[in-house]
Amino acid sequence: MQTLYASQGSESDNIKTNEKFLLQSLNSMYDLFLAQLSLLLEVHKKAKDRLEKSQQKLLATQEDKNPNAKFVNNEVLKLISLNENLKGLIEDQKANLWYLDFEYVEVIYKDMLKSDLYKDYMATKVSTFNDDKNFVIDLFTEVIAPNDKLYDYFEDKRITWLDDLPVVNTVILKLLKKVKSTTNENFFTPELFRDVEDKEFGIDLLKKTILNQLHFNEEISAKTKNWDAERITHIDTVLMQMAICEFQKFPSIPVKVTINEYLEIAKEYSTPKSSTFINGILDKIIKEYSSNGQLNKVGRGLL
C-alpha cells in the first residue's frame, strides 16, 4: 500500500523502481528490529558502566563498593548481549544509531530508574531466570515501546519506521516471551521473510496491481457511479485495487481473508468511514464475479 500510494502510479510507472522501494522498506523494518533490540542492550551496558564507575570512586561508599547488580546480571539481557549472531548484524548496520544518538539511551535509562517496575525488581538482589525474563518483558512494554521521545525519533529517522513500529515491537515481545536459558544463537536473529514464497508474494502483488491499475479503476468506477471521484481518497482506491488484484490474480487466497485484511488496513490508515465504503464496493464486485463465474479461486472454502 505504501509503495503504490507513493508512486501515484499508472501502468507506465517503472516497476523496477517500485519493487526496489518495496524491498528497501521491508529491509528497513529489519533495521528497526535491530535498533530496538540494540537499544535494550545499550541501556543494559549503560547500567553496567555506571556500576563499574561507582565502584572505582576514590571516596566510594559501602553501597558503591557493594551495589545491587541485579539488573546488570539479568540473565536474559546477558544472553542477548552475548549473542554473536545478533552482535554481527548490529555491527553490520551502516551506522550505530545509539552511538550517534546516545541521548535516547539516557532517556530510556532514566525513565527505567524512575519506574516502580524497576524499583520493585531491584528490591531484592537475587532472581530466577523467569523473574529476569518477566522484568525485561515489562521494561520493554511499559518503558521502551510507549516512549514518546523515541516515537518522535523514529518518525524523523526513516519515513516507514513509524508504521513498522507496532509490528516490530510485537515481534520482539513474542521473542522475549519465548526465550529460555538454552536458547540458541539464531533465536534473536529471525529471518525477515518466512520463506521465498512469502517474499515473492509481496513483489507479485505489487507488480500485478500496477500492471492492471487502469482495469481495476474501471471496475471501481462502475460500482461508484453515484460518487464524486474526488471524494474517494487515494488510499481507498489503492486498497481496492490491491483487493481486486487478489480476487483475480491469486487463486489460493480466500475472498474473506482478502476483504478482512484490507478493511483492517483501511481502519488504520484511512478515514473513519472508509472501511464501510470499501466493504460495500468489494461486496458488489464479488457478487458480480460469482454470478458471472469470474471468481478464480481454487480449493475448498475459498469463496
Rank of each mutant, 00 (worst) to 15 (best):
Ser81Arg: 11
Pro254Gln: 15
Thr189Lys: 06
Ala145Tyr: 12
Glu75Phe: 08
Lys48Leu: 06
Thr3Val: 10
Leu34Arg: 07
Asn73Asp: 11
Thr271Ser: 13
Phe216Cys: 00
Lys249Met: 09
Ile235Lys: 14
Val76Ser: 05
Lys267Asn: 08
Trp227Tyr: 15
Val257Met: 14
Leu39Val: 03
Asn96Glu: 09
Gln55Thr: 03
Lys53Pro: 03
Leu117Cys: 13
Phe201Arg: 13
Leu39Tyr: 01
Lys273Asp: 13
Asp111Trp: 00
Leu175Ala: 10
Asp101Ser: 15
Glu288His: 12
Leu206Asp: 08
Thr170Lys: 13
Phe71Cys: 04
Lys223Arg: 12
Asn14Phe: 07
Lys199Asn: 04
Glu191Cys: 07
Glu91Ala: 14
Trp98Ile: 02
Asp195Arg: 09
Asp31Phe: 05
Lys249Glu: 07
Leu295Glu: 04
Ala222Asn: 14
Asn226Gln: 10
Leu239Ile: 05
Arg231Trp: 13
Glu11Phe: 02
Asn66Ala: 11
Leu4Trp: 05
Tyr153Lys: 13
Ile108Asp: 02
Gln62Leu: 11
Gly202His: 15
Met242Pro: 01
Ile232Arg: 11
Thr128Leu: 07
Tyr289Glu: 03
Leu162Asp: 06
Gln248Val: 12
Tyr30Gly: 02
Met242Ser: 06
Phe102Gln: 14
Met242Asn: 05
Gly88Pro: 00
Leu77Cys: 04
Asn226Ser: 12
Tyr5Arg: 07
Tyr118Gln: 11
Gly202Ser: 13
Glu91Met: 14
Glu91Gln: 09
Ile281Val: 15
Phe140Leu: 06
Lys78His: 03
Lys207Phe: 03
Ile137Arg: 11
Asn169Phe: 00
His44Met: 10
Ser181Trp: 07
Thr237Arg: 14
Thr128Gly: 04
Ile144Gly: 00
Met122Cys: 01
Gln55Asp: 09
Lys20Gln: 08
Asn66Ile: 01
Asn14Tyr: 03
Gly293Gln: 06
Val257Phe: 15
